Computed example of a mutant assay.
Amino acid sequence: MPRKDQGWITFQLPEAERQLLESYCERMQRSKTDVLRQLVRGLDRELSDLSLQIATPQKSAPTRNLEIRAMRVSARNVFPAIVKQVRLGSINAEILLEIAPNVEAVSVITRSSAEALELTAGKPAYVTIKSSDVMVAVDD
């Protein structure tokens, strides 16, 4: 029987979450242990990024006094990512983000938002997916 003092962690997941984890592992051809290790290592990076953001003075709009603080969002699916590419159009910007090795997401936001966030290749960011905005497609 594994023991906690040996570094083993055991926990139970609801059936839907267990199936999601198994499906992800199968698609990525990685073990559950590898996926969970990557998640834990990402938490360390996420915490250091968060403390850096809070400790670093932020630019504020000249007409408003903005307080920068950590926040929570209502979307359940928030993934740390790295900006891979920014394609600026006249009105919108297409942002390519890498969530994990060989896992990318694309976001289309306004050009002014991309500029305000100072998005550039290599910059850490977060991908937030709200389930009510997920679309479904099928092959013909």
Rank of each mutant, 00 (worst) to 15 (best):
V103Q: 09
V78Q: 12
P2S: 07
L119C: 12
P2T: 06
V108Y: 01
S113Y: 09
E98S: 11
I109V: 06
C25R: 00
M71T: 15
R69S: 14
L39V: 05
S51H: 13
V73H: 05
Y126M: 10
P101I: 01
N92L: 13
W8C: 03
K59E: 12
K84P: 02
F11N: 05
K130P: 02
L96A: 14
C25A: 12
V127T: 08
D34N: 10
P2K: 06
V86H: 01
E94T: 13
M1I: 11
R3D: 03
Q53Y: 15
A81L: 07
Q12Y: 07
N77A: 15
Q12W: 00
E22P: 02
T10I: 09
T63Q: 15
N102R: 15
I9W: 08
T128E: 10
A61E: 10
R76N: 07
F11G: 00
V127D: 00
Q29R: 12
E46Q: 15
D5Y: 02
K130Q: 04
S90I: 10
T110N: 14
I54P: 04
A100E: 13
S107M: 07
A75W: 06
T128H: 01
S31A: 04
K84T: 12
N65Y: 12
E115H: 01
L47G: 03
D140S: 11
A55M: 14
R87E: 15
P80Y: 07
T110C: 03
